[in-house]
């Protein structure tokens, strides 16, 4: 983000963004369990809309991308493309054990790996699948992160000194070298 974080327009943008984040869900090769739990979040029992969180079909309208599942070889390029379509500032939540580390699918011949091998992830949710309340908690935690990022002027502050294991992703180059 550019500009003075304390300016009126910036504060207005922060307020609007944090009050009503739009979420898009992408199934990168999950078993559906996380997906149905995410849909369950939208339903009367958990009702995520009371926080202003709205599920959207198009990534171009989204602020937060929730990725479910280990990334399959066929979905890797699609995931990257969806991620590229989301306008900045974008946040990625990897949902469930598979999204975080491959889960039971780690090492299978048609699986590239966890979500982090393809796109940069801001938050991981544990569980197989995580309960809807945990997913809501993750989205709300992601909003706090977003607020902090906007105040700090970007995501750079979160990078620890000497932290080089996750390279900054440049679109189109990430998953190219993935081999079996």
């Amino acid at each position: 983000m550019t500009g003075d974080p304390q300016s009126l327009s910036q504060r207005l943008a922060t307020w609007a963004r944090v009050k009503s984040p739009w979420v898009t869900v992408f199934n990168s090769g999950a078993c559906n369990a996380c997906d149905i739990e995410i849909i369950a979040c939208l339903m009367p029992r958990f009702d995520v809309e009371r926080f202003g969180i709205l599920a959207k079909g198009s990534p171009r309208h989204a602020d937060i991308l929730i990725v479910t599942g280990a990334v399959t070889r066929k979905q890797a390029s699609r995931l990257l493309r969806v991620w590229e379509q989301i306008p900045e500032p974008k946040y990625v939540i990897a949902c469930g054990a598979c999204g975080a580390g491959g889960g039971v699918f780690q090492g299978l011949y048609h699986v590239v790996g966890d979500v982090g091998t393809v796109i940069p992830v801001d938050m991981y949710v544990a569980g197989c699948p995580p309960r809807p309340d945990e997913i809501i908690n993750a989205v709300v935690a992601c909003l706090n992160l977003m607020k902090e990022d906007l105040a700090q002027g970007g995501k750079e502050w979160r990078r620890k000194a000497g932290d080089t294991d996750r390279k900054e992703t440049t679109p189109g180059t990430v998953a190219k070298d993935v081999r079996v």
Binding site: K74, A76, S77, R78, V178, R179, V180
Partner: peptide
């Protein structure tokens, strides 16, 4: 290479 490449498709 078994795919999963960013380009193509």
């Amino acid at each position: 290479s078994y795919g999963g490449a960013a380009q193509g498709g």
